[in-house]
Amino acid sequence: MARTIAIRVVLGLLTLLGVSILIFAATEILPGDVATAVLGQGATPDTVRVFREELGLDRPAYIRYLEWLGGAVQGDFGVALTNKRDIVKTMSPKLFNTLFLAGYAALIAVPLAVGLGILAAIKEGKWIDRTANIVSLAAISMPEFFLGYLFIFFFAVQNRWFPSLATVYSSMPLDKRIYVVAMPAVCLTLLVTAHMLRMTRSSVLAIMSQPYIEMAFLKGLSRARVIFVHALPNAAGPIITVVALNLAYLIVGVVVIESVFVYPGIGQFMVDGVSKRDLPVVQACGLVFAAAFVILNTVADVLSILVNPRLRKPR
């Protein structure tokens, strides 16, 4: 089993390497001239030349890639084009803010969604299942910003219960931070819960239709015992995968929600970078997001291996 896990971790690292190549390639080895693209069509030949030298664009792409990767591994992403500030220094507090928001939402969403998903599955076809189905269907159909602005409209404008902008600063006390970030966190929670609930429900249902569950009923076991002893241990693997998939979705949802609530996180930072065509910033943020994504999936896979008796106890 250790071998299986080791292989999975190595695979994760390889994926990360592939991701870094892809991010670099998507920004720098595109057909056409990067300098012109960044500076716009109206740039004079002189400015273009200065810019090319500054970025080292005259050197081969693979050397620039290796330098970039080498820096990234040591926590150095260079400086931003627009304000010449060190990217890592600017990014760190924003990354913390984003992790705080995502963690906040995950802490509410995961137990809520998994609990409700299991409940809906074991009450398949009953009113609670139908309600959960319709409500979650509506929730996954909402664009993030719709929910965000609805919240602002009702809870910040109509009733002044929460601030409409989630402004945080580094010395903010935790209780105040929790209060200020509540609206974006709840927004994210709702969106992620809906997806996670639906997927948890269907993976539990897949287990419930297994012959060994029928056998458990025919053994005359109580409903609770069938669910908790016979169904859930087998559903653990699929549920872990579902949770990881949705936490990954959370990472993306964060970008839009940060924009709605003007929250100083890494998503906002990246969107800013994109609109200002600040290449190093975009690359750095992209890599951070992708790394979070890959790490989540790898951890989920390793956990799934750990809970699978077939892999835990080979023949």
Partner: peptide, 16 residues
């Protein structure tokens, strides 16, 4: 490609 969140990938590509 699927290891990069779609929105993030789109942002990177669309930026240039």
């Amino acid at each position: 490609m699927l290891s990069i969140p779609l929105l993030i990938f789109a942002l990177i590509v669309l930026s240039l």
